[in-house]
């Protein structure tokens, strides 16, 4: 499939957002990054779907972000951003792991495209595998429930984008929307119940 050069912009933007979520532990930044990630995925989706269908994923994604963010606000978990440019050892490690994974993918995605997914454009594939791998890294490297959920949402964004480029099914779209909202509710549930346990 032919791909326009501009499609690399949303693809890279999505990867940057996922990378921010993988690296940083500042909840307000994570919520903002998730918002940008869903926007970038929406732009890429518009190249393979009618905008009227792609916008559903954007709305669901933002609703998911809002649900998570509101649960953090309700529980008073959103902290002030201090020392934004200071990186802990763990953050540096995750950043390095994320960069390595993306570099690895950038090298191997063209051959993967020609072998398995010839109908999907390269920028979309780069975003798909980047999101999936960064999401998985996040879900596996961290034991905080909130970040595991963000990791799974990122992973699913990649999967949905890939599937959208391969096949159109309204039922599957609806089920994916349900899964995303379910994950957000589970994330909010984790935030609320863990906050309750911390209360004296």
């Amino acid at each position: 499939m032919n791909s326009a050069a501009w499609m690399y912009i949303p693809a890279v933007l999505a990867l940057l957002a996922a990378g921010t979520n993988l690296t940083r532990r500042v909840w307000i930044v994570n919520a903002a990054a998730l918002t940008v990630q869903y926007l970038a995925v929406f732009v890429l989706l518009c190249t393979v779907r009618p905008a009227s269908l792609a916008v559903v994923k954007l709305l669901v994604g933002w609703m998911v972000t809002l649900t998570l963010f509101l649960s953090l606000i309700t529980e008073g978990e959103v902290r002030k951003v201090t020392g934004f440019f200071k990186f802990s050892a763990g953050e540096v490690f995750r950043l390095a792991a994320g960069l390595f994974a993306v570099a690895f993918l950038a090298v191997f995605t063209p051959s993967l495209q020609s072998l398995v997914f010839p109908q999907t454009s390269l920028p979309i594939l780069l975003a798909v595998f980047g999101l999936a791998v960064l999401g998985l890294l996040q879900a596996s490297m961290i034991s905080e429930p909130f970040y595991v959920i963000i990791g799974l949402l990122t992973f699913l964004s990649g999967v949905e984008l890939l599937y959208a480029s391969l096949e159109l099914s309204i039922l599957l779209e609806a089920l994916f929307a349900g899964v995303n909202l379910g994950l957000a509710l589970v994330g909010a549930f984790f935030v609320i119940k863990d906050a309750e346990l911390r209360e004296p």
């Binding site: 998985l136 596996s140 595991v148 990791g151 799974l152 699913l156 890939l162 589970v186």
Partner: peptide
């Protein structure tokens, strides 16, 4: 959390 991650990983 591991249960959730594994089940989600199987989906795609």
């Amino acid at each position: 959390l591991r249960y959730l991650v594994f089940q989600t990983l199987a989906l795609p």
